[in-house]
Nucleic acid binder design. Structure first.
Length: 555
DNA sequence: CGTAACGATGTG
DNA sequence: CACATCGTTACG
C-alpha cells in the first residue's frame, strides 16, 4: 500500500496491456486508426495519419495488408458527404474501438452505443414490458411522456446508468450475474476506479463500494474500457468542474483505503476500550461501551456537563418565540369565542326555522285565484335544465331542475371513511354507511338525494313558504297554494334547512381548525427549551452589550 | 444522492 | 416528421 496507485497502474499496464501498431506499444490514449483488413490498430503519429486526415477516410488499410494484397486501396469520403457526414463521424468515432469494428463486420444485428453493449439480454430485447414505470410513462401505454426513458427491462446491464436499470428483485439478481460477465466494457470504470480495483485485487480487501458486484477484469478488458471513454470524451471540451469533482472522489477513495488498511493491518478493529467514565474494560463488539451502565454513566455526565451552561445561555435573552406563542394563543382564544357565539346563533336559527316550518304547516290551502295569477306571466321564455340541458317550461323549471339534479347526484357517492362525530349537533351529515366502499356519506343530510327521497306530499298539504316583501322583509304571511301545485317555492324547507346547516358545518370546521392551531402552539411552547432541545442547540449572545432589538420592538 | 422533468439528439 | 431515448439540470 505504500506505493502510489498511479505508479501501480502504469507499471501494471506495461506488463499486461495489449500492444498495437508497428511500434508494438500499448494504446497511450492518442488518436488511433484501425486497418479494415487485419483489424490491427495503429497510432496516428506512427504512420503519419492525423485525426483530421482520418475524417476524410472511409476505408483504411495498413502497409502490410496493402503489400500483401495490392488491390486494397485506401478509400476516401467524397467532399460533399464529408460535411453532411459530420454526425456519422461522431458516431463512428465514439464507437471506433477495435471491438466495435469487429462487431460491425460480423454483421451483428443488435446496435451498440454509449448506453448499449449490444450483448446483454436487455440489449437484445425488443419489446417493452408495459409494466415498469418507464413503460407506463410512454405515450403508447397511455402515459404522459414525461420520463422518456427506455423500458427498464431493456436498459443495458453494462452501460445504462444504474438508476435506470431494472429494479425488480428477481431481475436484479440476474442483472448482477450479467454484470459480472459484461462489465468489461463499462465506461463507468475510468482510471481512478481502475487503480482502486487494482489495489483491491492486491490487497484483497473490499471498500464500501456503491455496487456490490465484483467486475471481472483482465488487463486487456480494462484497456478497452479506457479507450472507449477516451475516444468518446475527446471531442468534448475539458470540463474542469467535473474533473475536480472526480479528483475529490479519488481522494476520498484513497483515504478510505488508507484507513481500512491501517485498521486491518493492526488487527485492532474490534478491540476498543470502553468509553464509560473511568472504565478500563474492553468495549463489547459493535459497541463503544462494555455495558449499558457505562453508556448511561457517560450520557449522564454529558448532561451534567452541558446542561447548566445551556440553561444559563438560554436565560440570557428573552424568548421572542414564547412571546409570539402567547399572542397567538390569545388570538386563537378570541376566535374560538367568536366561533362559539356564531354556532349558538346558528343553533338558534335552526330551531327558529323548524318553528316557522311547523307554523306554516298549519295554514289552510287557498284553492282558487292563485292558480290563475301565475298562469298569465312567462309566456315565450325558454329555459334549459342545467343538469340535462333539455328545454323546459319556465313554470315547472324549478321543480324539474331540482329533481333532475337529484337524479344525477344520487348516482354518485360522496363519503369519507370516518363517521361524523360532532358532539351536540343534530342533523348535519347524512352519514349513511356504504359497505361497498366502506365510507360514510358526507353530504348534508337534508339534501342527500342518494340516501333520502323527498317525502311524498299529501294532497291537502299547503306550501307554507313565508312570503317576503322586497326580497328580505318577512311579511308574516305564508304561501297558501297547495304544496303539490306550487312551483314557485318547490322544496323551500329543504333549501332553507340546507342553508342553515351549511353555515353550521362551516362554524364547526372553523372551531376544529382553531383547536388544531391551539394544539400546535401549545406543543411548540411545551417543547421549547426542553432537555433535548437544550442539549442539541445553543443560544449564542453574539454581543452581550447590545440589547435585543426584537424584544424592544414587540413591547 | 436519487428522481422527475425536459430539451436535445438519434432514428426510421 | 414523429417517435425513442439520451444527457443535463433542478429539486428535495
Amino acid at each position: 500500500m505504500d506505493h502510489t496507485p498511479a505508479l501501480d497502474n502504469s507499471s501494471m499496464e506495461e506488463e499486461n496491456a495489449p500492444l498495437y501498431c508497428i511500434c508494438r506499444k500499448p494504446d497511450i490514449n492518442c488518436f488511433m486508426i484501425g486497418c479494415d483488413s487485419c483489424n490491427e490498430w495503429f497510432h496516428g503519429h506512427c504512420i503519419n495519419v492525423t485525426e483530421k486526415m482520418a475524417k476524410a477516410i472511409r476505408e483504411w488499410y495498413c502497409k502490410r495488408c496493402q503489400d500483401k494484397d495490392p488491390s486494397l486501396e485506401i478509400k476516401y469520403r467524397s467532399k460533399k458527404n464529408r460535411e453532411k457526414d459530420g454526425e456519422i463521424h461522431r458516431a463512428e468515432k465514439r464507437s471506433s474501438t477495435p471491438d466495435f469494428k469487429l462487431e460491425k463486420r460480423r454483421g451483428s444485428k443488435v446496435k451498440r452505443s454509449a448506453r448499449m453493449c449490444g450483448e446483454c439480454e436487455p440489449c437484445r430485447r425488443t419489446e417493452d414490458c408495459a409494466q415498469c414505470d418507464f413503460c407506463k410513462d410512454m405515450k403508447k401505454f397511455g402515459g404522459p411522456n414525461k420520463i422518456r426513458q427506455k423500458c427498464r427491462l431493456r436498459q443495458c446491464v453494462v452501460r445504462a446508468r444504474k438508476m435506470l436499470r431494472v429494479r425488480d428483485e428477481e431481475l436484479s439478481l440476474r442483472e448482477r450475474r450479467d454484470n459480472i460477465m459484461h462489465r468489461r466494457y463499462s465506461d463507468e470504470f475510468d482510471g481512478n476506479e481502475m487503480e482502486l480495483f487494482q489495489q483491491y485485487k492486491e490487497q484483497n480487501l473490499m471498500w464500501g463500494s456503491e455496487d456490490e458486484d465484483v467486475p471481472v477484469f483482465s488487463p486487456v478488458r480494462r484497456k478497452k474500457a479506457i479507450k472507449v471513454k477516451h475516444v468518446k470524451r475527446r471531442e468534448k471540451k475539458f470540463d474542469k468542474k467535473k474533473e475536480s469533482r472526480r479528483h475529490k472522489q479519488k481522494q476520498k477513495h484513497k483515504d478510505r483505503i488508507r484507513h481500512n488498511s491501517r485498521v486491518d493491518g493492526r488487527q485492532v478493529g474490534d478491540l476498543h476500550q470502553c468509553l464509560g467514565p473511568n472504565c478500563i474494560e474492553a468495549a463489547r463488539p459493535n459497541s463503544k461501551y462494555c455495558s449499558e451502565d457505562c453508556g448511561m454513566k457517560l450520557a449522564a455526565n454529558r448532561i451534567y456537563e452541558i446542561l447548566p451552561q445551556r440553561i444559563q445561555q438560554w436565560q440570557q435573552s428573552p424568548c421572542v418565540a414564547e412571546e409570539q406563542g402567547r399572542k397567538q394563543l390569545e388570538r386563537i382564544r378570541r376566535e374560538q369565542q367568536a366561533a362559539r357565539l356564531r354556532l349558538a346563533e346558528m343553533e338558534r336559527r335552526f330551531h327558529e326555522l323548524e318553528g316557522i316550518i311547523a307554523k306554516a304547516k298549519q295554514q289552510d290551502v287557498q284553492q282558487d285565484e292563485e292558480v290563475s295569477e301565475t298562469e298569465g306571466e312567462d309566456t315565450d321564455l325558454q329555459i334549459f335544465c342545467v343538469s340535462c340541458s333539455h328545454p323546459i317550461n319556465p313554470k315547472v323549471a324549478l321543480r324539474h331542475m331540482e329533481r333532475c339534479y337529484a337524479k344525477y347526484e344520487s348516482q354518485t357517492s360522496f363519503g369519507s371513511i370516518f363517521p361524523t362525530r360532532i358532539e351536540g349537533a343534530t342533523r348535519l351529515f347524512c352519514d349513511v354507511y356504504n359497505p361497498q366502499s366502506k365510507t360514510y356519506c358526507k353530504r348534508l343530510q337534508v339534501l342527500c338525494p342518494e340516501h333520502s327521497r323527498d317525502p311524498k306530499v299529501p294532497v291537502d298539504e299547503v306550501c307554507g313558504c313565508p312570503l317576503v316583501r322586497n326580497v328580505f322583509e318577512e311579511s308574516g304571511e305564508f304561501c297558501r297554494v297547495s304544496k303539490r301545485k306550487c312551483n314557485k317555492h318547490y322544496c323551500w324547507e329543504k333549501l332553507r334547512r340546507a342553508e342553515v346547516d351549511l353555515e353550521r358545518v362551516r362554524v364547526w370546521y372553523k372551531l376544529d381548525e382553531l383547536f388544531e392551531q391551539e394544539r400546535n402552539v401549545r406543543t411548540a411552547m411545551t417543547n421549547r427549551a426542553g432537555l433535548l432541545a437544550l442539549m442539541l442547540h445553543q443560544t449564542i449572545q453574539h454581543d452581550p452589550l447590545t440589547t435585543d432589538l426584537r424584544s424592544n420592538k414587540d413591547r
